[in-house]
Amino acid sequence: MDLLMPFMIGTLFSVSLYLILHRHLFKLILGLILFGLATNLFLFIVGGLTRGSTAIIREQETIPKEPYADPVPQALLLTAIVIGFGIQAFAIVLIRRVYQTFKSNNLNDLRGDRGPEKKKH
C-alpha cells in the first residue's frame, strides 16, 4: 500500500498534465478533474496513513489511544475537495460556453482577439 500510493499519485499527475496539454476541450475537463484528484490524494497520503482507530477521545481519557489517524489532513482534504469541486464546476460551465460560442472543440480555433481583426483589414 505504501509503495503503491506514490506510483498511483505520480500516474495521476502525469496523465492529468498530458490531458491538460491536449488541444481537445473535453480532455481539458478530464485533465482538470484528474489533476484535482491527484493533488487531493497527495495531500492525504503525505499527511500519513495510519491504520487503527479514529482520533476520538474516549470517556475518562485525556488523549486518544494510539495508534490513531491524524484528523488534520483529513479536514484539509475535505476543504480542498469542496473548493476543487466548485472550481471544476465553474471550469466545466466555462468550457461548455466556450464550445457554444466558438462552435469548436479544438483549442487552436480559439483566437478571440485576432480573428475579427484580420477580417477587417
Binding site: 489533476f35 484535482g36 493533488t39 487531493n40 495531500l43 503525505v46 480542498a80 483549442l107 478571440g112 482577439d113
Partner: peptide, 27 residues
C-alpha cells in the same frame, strides 16, 4: 465575449494548476 472566453479559459487552467501545486506544498 469571444476574447474574454479565450482569456478566461487560459486563466482558469493555469491557476487551477497553481492552486494544486500550493496544496501539494502545504501537504
Amino acid at each position: 465575449t469571444k476574447p474574454q472566453l479565450e482569456g478566461a479559459l487560459k486563466y482558469v487552467t493555469i491557476n487551477f494548476i497553481a492552486s494544486g501545486l500550493l496544496l501539494t506544498g502545504i501537504g
